[in-house]
Simulated assay, not measured.
Amino acid sequence: MGKAERNRKRRQRQSGHGHPWTEVPPGAVRGGTQAAVSLAADIFEETQMPCRTAFLDDPLFGGPKAAVTAIQPDGSVLTDGEIINPGPVVLFEPIKVMMVKDTRTGTVHEARTEGVISGGFHRVPRGIMASLPAEGWNLYRTATGLMLCDTFEGIWAEGTLELDPAWVSEATSQGWVTVFFGPRLGVRIPPHTSAQSYTLQQRIAEFRQGRSEGLCAAASVKWHPVAPQETRSWVLLPAGTFGQPLPVAYMPQLNFTRLGGPEAFGFVRTPERLADIPIAVGVTAEVTPTDVDLVQPHLDDSLNFVGGYRAPGGATDLRYAAWHAAAHTHGQILVITGHQDFPAGHKIRHDTPEDVDKRVLQVMGASYAATVSVSDTPRRAPLA
């Protein structure tokens, strides 16, 4: 092989052309495509997952830890026999995973695990059991279990379980909980296996395997013994609601808090006459067949996101399809933002109409509103 041929093949390898890693395996999707975007949205929005609470003296983490008082010349350690106060732990193990392969290096990682690591968690490989703080992250006790939120108060994980009073007491006393996140933590029961037959040894083996494969992330997260008071839920209401012609989107005020609050974008306290609502400044709505995204159009795509909603039924959601059509027909939507849950859906199934009306007035009176223009050409790819 001549020098020119060798250089040509070297350039092909560096550019990825002709490399076996550039071929998409059966059942996989290529990154950056519509299918990949849709798959990522489905997986990242599935926040409900199995979880388990424990203490750091659990055999899963190596058993009780004794206080080290001295290290002898031969490397052995001396302890005073007193067990170190075991800290509270929670393990979140997602059901669905998204394995991503770098076509140039062949490196494989799990998307959500990498997401929490980039957000402040750290990887926990074999041989190292550290629990560094993830600043800005919060773990909340809820009516049904636990909820993990990131620095923007976005929900990453929710678990339904009955909490041990001793665990809650220790978490409240310390103010921090060690949170593990990953697809192989020994929490979920494997297929064709019962809870009784899934032994502790098997759980430990899976936990160790996950750490060896880089699929385990952990951090110390601030503990909150009560559920957050801020709503995190969007509610879409059809055109004509409240006696005005535009389709309505009620969104969490948390989305605006980190950006200076809704008033920074021209929102005003929701008036009694919605015809007097001003037009928002510095923010537009990108309304696709499956999503509503509020963005700051003057910023780069990596920085412009304010908040978003995805139709539960995707492109087959008929109610959202009607809302989407009305938004594009009018070219505007009415956005109302507040701290409280808007009374709608399953939350009001046991309420009387009078109670619902009273709560709506209460929420509206504490909210902000503005008319937001709908972008004709969304810069974000719609999800199929």
Rank of each mutant, 00 (worst) to 15 (best):
E153I: 07
A218Y: 06
P191Y: 02
Q201C: 13
L78R: 14
L91F: 14
K101I: 12
G186S: 03
M1V: 12
F342L: 02
L246I: 04
V372I: 09
P64A: 05
T151H: 06
A111S: 04
I348L: 05
M49K: 08
G31P: 10
V29A: 02
E272C: 10
I83A: 08
E93P: 07
V283R: 04
G266W: 10
Q202G: 15
A311C: 12
A166I: 10
H339F: 06
G63H: 09
L56R: 14
P133L: 13
L215A: 09
V306P: 12
Q229K: 05
T270C: 12
G313K: 06
G115E: 02
T172P: 03
I84M: 15
V335F: 08
W176F: 14
P73F: 08
Q34D: 05
A166R: 15
V235S: 08
G136E: 02
D102M: 13
G81P: 15
E23S: 11
G175P: 15
L78V: 13
A384S: 10
V235G: 03
I336W: 00
D102Y: 12
A239H: 06
A325V: 09
A326D: 13
G119V: 06
A369F: 08
E114L: 12
W167V: 04
D102A: 11
V124G: 04
A111T: 00
C51E: 00
P378M: 07
V268P: 08
P50N: 00
A285L: 12
E230A: 07
I128G: 01
A311T: 06
T113M: 09
R379Y: 07
E46C: 11
E158Q: 08
R269K: 08
W234I: 05
P297E: 01
P191H: 02
L318K: 03
T337V: 03
H350D: 09
V100M: 14
C51W: 04
E263G: 10
G308R: 06
Y140E: 00
G18D: 05
M99K: 10
E46D: 00
P247T: 03
G175L: 15
L383S: 03
L56S: 09
M49L: 13
Q296T: 05
A70R: 15
V187L: 15
